[in-house]
């Protein structure tokens, strides 16, 4: 089973997770290759977000295995020691639906606090990198702004830059545009598109079907705690053989 470790960044096998009686993930297996962009679609409650949160350790799974760059995070439901977990999780990044910027810190400090505190980087070095990433997301002029003065789209772009400061090997997006006004989604999706062009490894849970079709190398359709369909955007959006997927996609088209 070690043959593909060099090319797969994330390997998930038979992941299970229940909240009380509610089995949210029933048996999920997934591989994400280096440089691959995977879009995860499905109706709410299908387990998309829980899968993402379980990969990055925000939810504790009940069973299954998560391997990141060849290192176990959890094997057959048994987690490695906390310190090891943190070392593994530090190489992953996550962007949240509600941005979760630190409201008491300026944009610059939001970006540099983790590198300085966690990765023990020099403040000046981190500040240089912060400027570079902010100009990448088009917000260099907001360096000294407080988060409360930003629009939702700007907040999410800052959140993406903040995550990139830690140089993650994979970026997980949990519905990055769902909390945004429709006219602000474009600027965030544009940033993600650019990351995809840079061959950033990404798993994106999204309701933006057009975006998923355009940006993803592979699309995963989750239904009722399982991966119900998986394939290229073309296979998923145009040649689907799955009745549940058809119904899901139809509900989007009818909107």
């Amino acid at each position: 089973m070690n043959d593909s470790i060099t090319s797969d960044v994330v390997i998930v096998e038979h992941m299970r997770k229940a909240f009380g009686d509610n089995e949210v993930l029933r048996d999920v297996s997934l591989r994400v290759g280096r440089g691959e962009v995977v879009a995860v679609i499905g109706s709410s409650g299908s387990g998309k977000s829980t899968m993402l949160r379980s990969i990055i350790g925000l939810e504790r799974v009940d069973g299954g295995t998560v391997i990141f760059e060849g290192a176990d995070l959890v094997r057959d439901g048994i987690y490695v020691p906390e310190k090891q977990q943190r070392r593994i999780l530090r190489r992953m990044g996550m962007v949240f639906q509600h941005f979760n910027l630190f409201p008491h810190l300026s944009v610059k400090d939001n970006l540099i606090t983790a590198p300085v505190t966690v990765a023990k980087k020099h403040k000046s070095e981190a500040a240089e990198k912060a400027k570079e990433l902010l100009s990448k997301v088009g917000l260099l002029d907001k360096l000294d702004a407080m988060p409360s003065s930003l629009s939702g789209g700007q907040k999410q772009r800052v959140a993406i830059a903040r995550t990139l400061m830690m140089e993650p090997r994979v970026l997980l997006f949990d519905e990055p545009t769902s909390a945004l006004d429709p006219e602000l989604t474009g600027e965030v999706l544009e940033v993600i598109r650019e990351l995809a062009a840079d061959r950033m490894t990404m798993v994106i849970v999204t309701h933006e079907m057009t975006f998923a079709r355009d940006v993803a190398d592979r699309v995963i359709f989750m239904d009722n705690g399982l991966i119900a369909a998986e394939g290229s955007p073309k296979e998923i959006f145009y040649d689907s053989q799955n009745a549940r997927l058809d119904a899901f996609l139809k509900s989007f088209r009818d909107r």
């Binding site: 990055i56 943190r86 996550m94 949240f96 979760n100 910027l101 983790a114 966690v118 995550t163």
Partner: peptide, 10 residues
Amino acid sequence: GQYEAARVLG
């Protein structure tokens, strides 16, 4: 969400 953001940043 503040705890979660801090956690994933390490």
